[in-house]
Design a protein around this nucleic acid. Structure first.
Length: 369
DNA sequence: ATGCATGAGTC
DNA sequence: ACTCATGCATA
C-alpha cells in the first residue's frame, strides 16, 4: 500500500460515472424505505460484468462458468442455510439475551490492538471457501463445492466463548507463491490507450474455464499483474479508466478501488475470475503499446466532491462485531434492536451486516489446497 | 487500502 | 430484504 497510494489519489474525479447502460433496468425499484438521510447520487453505470448479462461478451470472455458457478454457489447456500439459527433457540425468544450477550462480549473486548497501525482489524480466521459452511453452523457437507474446499473447523462456536471470540487472529498468510522477483527498471512512460486491435497477436484465449477460476492461479495472476502495472508506471486508477478504451462488450471503466481489490485479492472468487481476462487484455495491450513507444497519458483532473461517509465509532463497531459473531444474519427486528441499542440508524446497521458478510466471502489467502 | 453505500437482480 | 459487483470518500 505504498508504491502508488500517494501519487495516485486525487488525480481524476470522473471516469466511469454515467453509463446507465443497455436496458438493464428493471421496474423493480424497491421502495426506498423512507430515505433515512441517505446520500444520493446521480447517475451511475451499473453493469456488472459478472453473469446474467443479456448482451454478449467476447467468446474468449464469455464463460458460462461464471453464471453457473455463481448460480451453484448461491443454490448451495440456500440449500445449506434453511436451518433456523441454533442460538436463537438457545437463548429463547429474548432478543434481550442475545443483545446483552453480545454487548457483554463487546465490553470485555479490551481492545488490545495496536491503534497506531494503519492496519487494524482482526478478521476471524475465515477460510474463504469455508465461509459457506461456517455461517450455517451446520456445515452442509462440502460435497458439492465447486472448489477443492473441504476445510477444517469452520469457526469456534460463537456464543459459548466470549473471551477469545473476537480475539484470536491466527493469520496463516499463505505465502505459497514465489513469483518473479520484482524487475528493477522502471520506464516512466505510461501507455494507457491501447489500440483496439492489439498488434502482435496477444490474444491469449483463456479457453479453459478451470484455469481462470483456480484460486491459486488467480492469486498468481494478481501479483504478476500488479508488478507489471507498476513497472509500466501506471496507477490503479489509470488502469481502471483505461479499461473503457478496451471497448470490450459489457466492460466499462472501473474504479481505483476495484483494481486495488483485485490486486489484493479482496474480491469474491467469482469477481476475481471475471475480471482476470479483462485485466489480462489490458495488460497485454499496455505492454505492447509500451514496446512500440506510446505517448503519455493525459488525464484530466477536476471534479466535485460530495457524499459524506458515515463512520461507526470503535465501541459501536466492537459491539457490532460481537453481534455478528453470534448472529451473522440478524432478522430485521434484531437489526432494529441493535440499531437502537447502539444509537445507529437501522439502515446503517443493516448495511454493516451485509458488508460484513460480503467480507467473509472474499478471497484473501485462498491458498486452500 | 478500506469503510460505508448504491443498485440490479433474486428469492 | 438479500447477494454481488462496484464505487465514493477517507484514513
Amino acid at each position: 500500500m505504498s508504491e502508488d497510494a500517494g501519487g495516485e489519489r486525487a488525480r481524476r474525479g470522473s471516469a466511469a460515472i454515467e453509463h446507465r447502460s443497455l436496458g438493464q433496468r428493471r421496474g423493480r425499484e424497491r421502495a426506498p424505505s423512507r430515505c433515512q438521510g441517505l446520500h444520493t447520487r446521480e447517475g451511475r453505470r451499473t453493469m456488472a460484468l459478472n453473469a446474467k448479462q443479456p448482451f454478449t461478451m467476447p467468446a474468449a470472455l464469455q464463460e458460462p462458468k461464471f453464471s453457473s458457478l455463481h448460480a451453484s454457489a448461491e443454490a448451495m447456500r440456500r440449500v445449506c442455510l434453511p436451518a433456523p439459527q441454533l442460538q436463537g433457540n438457545i437463548f429463547g425468544s429474548f432478543d434481550e439475551s442475545l443483545l446483552a450477550r453480545a454487548e457483554a462480549l463487546a465490553a470485555v473486548d479490551i481492545a488490545p490492538h495496536a491503534k497506531g497501525l494503519p492496519h487494524h482489524h482482526h478478521h476471524p480466521p475465515f477460510k474463504p471457501d469455508a465461509a459457506f459452511s461456517a455461517m450455517s453452523g451446520v456445515p452442509c457437507a462440502a460435497a458439492a463445492l465447486p472448489l477443492p474446499a473441504a476445510l477444517p473447523h469452520p469457526l469456534p462456536h460463537p456464543a459459548l466463548d466470549g473471551g477469545d471470540l473476537l480475539e484470536h487472529l491466527s493469520s496463516p498468510l499463505a505465502v505459497g507463491g514465489l513469483p518473479e522477483p520484482l524487475p528493477p527498471p522502471l520506464p516512466p512512460a505510461a501507455p494507457l490507450a491501447l489500440p483496439v486491435g492489439a498488434p502482435g497477436g496477444p490474444p491469449p484465449p483463456p479457453a479453459a474455464p478451470e484455469v481462470g477460476s483456480d484460486p491459486r492461479e488467480l492469486e498468481a495472476f494478481a501479483e504478476r499483474f500488479k508488478q507489471r502495472r507498476v513497472r509500466l508506471g501506471v496507477t490503479q486508477a489509470d488502469v481502471g479508466a483505461a479499461l473503457a478504451a478496451l471497448q470490450l462488450p459489457g466492460v466499462g471503466a472501473l474504479s481505483q478501488s476495484t483494481i486495488c481489490r483485485f490486486e489484493s485479492l479482496t474480491l469474491s472468487h467469482n469477481n476475481m475470475a471475471a475480471l482476470r481476462p479483462v485485466l489480462q487484455a489490458w495488460l497485454d495491450g499496455a505492454e505492447a503499446a509500451h514496446r512500440d513507444g506510446a505517448a503519455g497519458p493525459d488525464l484530466l483532473p477536476g471534479a466535485e466532491r460530495k457524499r459524506k461517509r458515515t463512520s461507526i465509532a470503535a465501541p459501536e463497531k466492537r459491539s457490532l462485531e460481537a453481534f455478528f459473531a453470534l448472529q451473522p444474519r440478524p432478522s430485521a427486528e434484531k437489526i432494529a434492536a441493535i440499531a437502537e441499542k447502539l444509537d445507529l440508524k437501522k439502515n446503517v446497521v443493516r448495511v454493516w451486516f451485509c458488508n460484513q458478510r460480503q467480507k467473509q466471502k472474499r478471497m484473501k489467502y485462498s491458498a486452500v489446497h
